[in-house]
Design a protein around this nucleic acid. Structure first.
Lengths: 250, 250
DNA sequence: CGGGGTGTTGAACATATTCAACAACTGTGG
DNA sequence: CCACAGTTGTTGAATATGTTCAACACCCCG
């Protein structure tokens, strides 16, 4: 899977996060290079900062629910989130995870299409929808960015459809591991072992599998010496090329 | 599923197609109200027409292949297409169908993310990518449209992920039938029986099922008096509300 | 140290797949 | 216009992959 997030969360092209000398809150932001904000500089950034509201939430909290009115949009700065849709009997499909730098909440018709929940404690920049839209109109390059990103997201969504519709459990797990490695590379985080902040249950709901199948499949990948499971929420990569082959369906 | 197409093909908001008095090829176009072109009028339309190249293809033909360079974008005017991705061993996931008025081919990185194949004989308006992009820059309202549409597509893609990841065969087929009814309504086509131009195999590859399962499931829906199968490529709707309930997971 | 949640493992089961045969339909040529 | 061939669709039986139900282990975290 490419280095983009699917469905709702918007990520900007590759740029390694690096600390900024503090002068305004935005200029000091550690994930500025990853976020929408990277399209702006200098006084433009001040304009963004003027309409920015900082927000926090503890792990497990719900930022917004499917069906709610979409009055705000957000930019995640710290932590991880999950986006999901539910069926009436509780079956759940996680449509994407949100990482620092990702933008979320841009609903089209004013209604949220998914629930957004914090996996860990999170910090966000919060914007009133209309105010940010005004800024978008003022700085068209922001709009171009979003358009390009949306197309990338569509491509990622297609990859996920291929995964959900046609890949085996083994292939899905391998795809997930490879995608997680690629995201870690993109964000400049450790790539071996990789950090996997979500539960087995969440992984299952993302890959269209049950917790048990996720667990079993990981165990089998460990037995066949493709990965190791050194600690909770960590996966050690032993045979990346092998995993890639599996992920691609060979 | 909402009245939008997923993944790659771009549809504009609801508008019933109606014939236009002929004056320029675009002004006479029967699907103009459905297409991107609806954002333009008068002389703007002439500009579009100036860079437009008519194209045809017979059913079964491949418009472009996954991985090819994306030099052109297209607007389908007549016929139906399917978009798909393949795994090395031939497993296929159809990520969307393309109907008259849909826009397709806008690749981000210049490489096609999917194969586009004609289901029936088709006609298209073909544009050189760069030329159309210039026009987009000249008429920003086109860009706004595309941005909104892309978000709609993302929502549709999420719905499809929920379907592929969590719905039963019965629920998938019901969802597909309901979506097809809604599309027929949108396009002002007969809604009972509905026209289903794709094969069982294509339906299966779209819903993450096999041909046999599609066939069996349709038969069972017929036996339970929810649909009828009056002729090849047609489905009669007997209990739409029941189908909707099934599709939504009740 | 103890308890609740998370993760793992096992066995029985179910849904959809695979393999196979046949039926129906389409389109083509006699 | 009918016959035939190839394709598409349907149905059946056996099978497999992943699920469900259940028990247990692990491990943070109090």
């Amino acid at each position: 899977m490419p280095d983009i997030n699917i469905s709702g969360a918007i990520r900007l092209p590759k740029a390694v996060a690096k600390p900024k000398p503090a002068s305004s809150p935005c200029a000091a932001c550690t994930i500025r290079d990853l976020a929408v904000c990277s399209a702006l500089e200098g006084t433009e950034l001040d304009r963004l900062n003027a309409i920015r509201m900082p927000a926090q939430m503890t792990g497990g909290g719900t930022l917004f629910d499917e069906g709610a009115t979409a009055d705000y949009v957000y930019n995640l700065t710290v932590g991880t989130m999950k986006l999901y849709r539910l069926l009436p009997d509780g079956r759940r499909q996680i449509t994407g995870f949100v990482y620092p730098g990702d933008f979320l909440g841009l609903a089209n018709n004013g209604e949220r299409a998914y629930t957004a929940e914090a996996l860990s404690d999170i910090s966000l920049c919060k914007f009133k929808r209309g105010q940010l839209e005004n800024l978008f109109n003022e700085f068209p390059k922001l709009k171009d960015r979003l358009l390009g990103i949306s197309r990338d997201e569509l491509v990622a969504a297609q990859a996920q459809m291929l995964l959900l519709g046609r890949k085996t459990a083994r292939e899905r797990i391998a795809s997930f591991i490879i995608a997680t490695i690629e995201r870690a590379e993109l964000m400049g985080l450790p790539t071996n072992p990789i950090e996997v902040p979500m539960s087995r249950n969440d992984i299952g709901d993302y890959l269209g599998l049950t917790t048990e199948t996720v667990s079993r499949t990981l165990t089998r990948l460990k037995q066949t010496k493709m990965i190791s499971l050194p600690a909770n929420k960590q996966i050690g990569i032993i045979d990346r090329d092998g995993l890639t082959k599996i992920a691609e369906g060979f």
